[in-house]
């Protein structure tokens, strides 16, 4: 457990620092955030023809409301936590890669739900938007990370049991 904690902390701080570097932001994080905005808008457009996206901004042509997806709202930090935890925990490389891939998709799926929900909550009630945006959704995203990691641990445990009886 101590070894896991140390590796996790080192990986977490390293990945978090790397993510904040200007070239990484420019070449990876911001294009990815723009892609998230495009995907979110594409999911809303069939139901709401007034939605449009431009870069990291999603706007509504009828109400004039717009949201900009910023650092902390793109799920990258949550993904970093999951990646650090999965890499720090002892398991075969292939299982780690699959866990990171599936976990990343799970985080981003919930994150897109967050973006879409906030986009409409903001048009309805700005106070509720602030509350859910700043306090509630970060918790739900981190809970998603925790659940994905615990499911991964359970999968590893069951594999361990299966191999011990084989």
């Amino acid at each position: 457990m101590t070894r896991f904690a140390i590796i996790f902390a080192v990986l977490l701080l390293t990945l978090f620092t790397v993510e904040l570097l200007e070239p990484v932001q420019r070449m990876v994080v911001q294009p990815f955030t723009g892609l998230l905005a495009d995907i979110s808008a594409a999911l809303m457009m069939p139901f709401d023809g007034y939605v449009q996206s431009s870069g990291r901004i999603i706007s509504h042509r009828e109400t004039g409301f717009a949201v900009s997806i910023e650092a902390g709202c793109n799920g990258v930090e949550a993904a970093i936590v999951l990646i650090a935890a999965v890499l720090a925990y002892p398991a075969p490389i292939a299982k780690k890669a699959i866990a990171i891939g599936i976990g990343f998709l799970a985080i981003q799926a919930l994150n897109i739900l967050r973006i879409i929900s906030l986009f409409y909550i903001g048009q309805w009630n700005l106070d509720l938007f602030t509350w859910t945006h700043l306090y509630l959704w970060p918790v739900l995203i981190m809970l998603d990370v925790l659940v994905v990691f615990l499911l991964y641990l359970r999968h590893l445990a069951r594999q361990e049991v299966a191999s011990s009886y084989a």
Binding site: L153, A157, R158
Partner: peptide
Amino acid sequence: SSLLSAAANPAQAM
């Protein structure tokens, strides 16, 4: 503990 030390406690992992 069933998740973190499954190898030592296989019955709990299920």
